[in-house]
């Protein structure tokens, strides 16, 4: 299989890439890891006239940490997040190692996953839970938006055709207290997209009270979802079994899955509840239990 013919322009600087997207707009697609775009093009489900390869743009690479805040260049590969060591952000590595398979993770990028906006992708839920921000830029200006304003619909984001994602910012957790985070993914087989995915993170003060909480959901709606109602219930409280159970129920009611051959609507909702409960219990126990995935 091979794609429809296209013009290929490799950018070496961000300015060059921005000039290209400005010039070609709707006719062009950015090529990052190519792990979503090229399969679509091979199946002729996408046929852009121009591909703008950003792999050589050094300004878009690298992960830096300042005061606990993580700045991810748009070209950050899934494997970089899998093997990086950021103890203040336990959720990122645990989630990264569950995306696709190791070879796809060597190429696929965080920003590419966000721009593709598959509701079953993993980064969307994780970065919603972490209250991340997305920085985008066109030829004239840059803007940043919280993750919760980024996804519009399935495969549709707030990104304009003349814009490029330049960075993803993950805020620092509170300077004191305990940070916990887990990602649970129900998959039919290793390396598959989620049937249901749940990202849970919370920071607790020394008395065990929740300072902040984040819950993101994959594959249970038209976009990745943020369970804001469940998050609100948790803040300021202690993680008692009753509170955890209530938050898990609320999160399940905030999901809106579709029944398909991977599971019925009821089943997927029930799995959201189970995973939110499991994640919060693990955080309450202070457990840094390594949970690869469950099913």
């Amino acid at each position: 299989m091979f794609p429809e013919a296209f013009a290929y322009y490799a950018a070496h600087t961000l300015d060059e890439a921005l000039d290209y997207v400005d010039q070609y707009g709707y006719d062009a697609k950015i090529l990052a890891g190519g792990q979503s775009l090229l399969p679509l093009m091979k199946l002729r489900l996408a046929a852009p006239a121009v591909l703008i390869d950003i792999n050589a743009v050094a300004e878009l690479t690298g992960v830096t940490e300042t005061d606990g805040q993580l700045h991810l260049g748009a070209l950050t590969r899934h494997s970089t997040m899998e093997f990086g060591c950021w103890p203040q952000h336990p959720l990122v590595a645990e989630a990264a190692q569950q995306i696709a398979d190791p070879i796809v993770r060597n190429r696929g990028t965080v920003a590419g996953s966000l721009a593709h906006a598959d509701p079953a992708a993993d980064w969307g839920a994780v970065l919603l839970a972490l209250n991340a921000r997305v920085e985008v830029r066109d030829k004239h200006q840059s803007r940043a938006m919280p993750m919760r304003e980024f996804f519009i619909d399935t495969f549709t984001t707030a990104l304009q055709p003349t814009e490029i994602i330049t960075r993803v910012e993950i805020p620092a957790p509170p300077a004191f207290g305990y940070v916990g985070g887990h990602y649970y993914k129900l998959e039919r087989k290793v390396g598959d997209f989620a049937v249901v995915g749940v990202a849970v993170t919370a920071t607790l003060d020394q008395g065990g009270r929740v300072l902040s909480a984040g819950i993101g959901l994959s594959a249970v709606g038209t976009t990745s979802l943020k369970a804001t109602g469940a998050e609100e219930i948790l803040v300021g409280q202690r993680l008692t079994p009753e509170l955890i159970s209530e938050a898990a129920q609320v999160a399940a009611s905030e999901s809106s899955p579709f029944g398909d051959r991977r599971g019925s609507e009821e089943y997927k909702r029930a799995m959201v509840q189970v995973f939110v409960e499991r994640g919060l219990l693990a955080i309450a126990e202070g457990g840094s239990r390594v949970t690869v995935h469950s099913a």
């Binding site: 190519g34 792999n55 070879i103 060597n106 190429r107």
Partner: peptide, 19 residues
């Protein structure tokens, strides 16, 4: 189709030759 590109395993059916 896995090959190493600059030492890193890549699925060569999902990378362009020009890359």
């Amino acid at each position: 189709c896995t090959v190493l590109v600059d030492g890193v395993p890549v699925k060569s059916c999902t990378m362009l030759a020009v890359q």
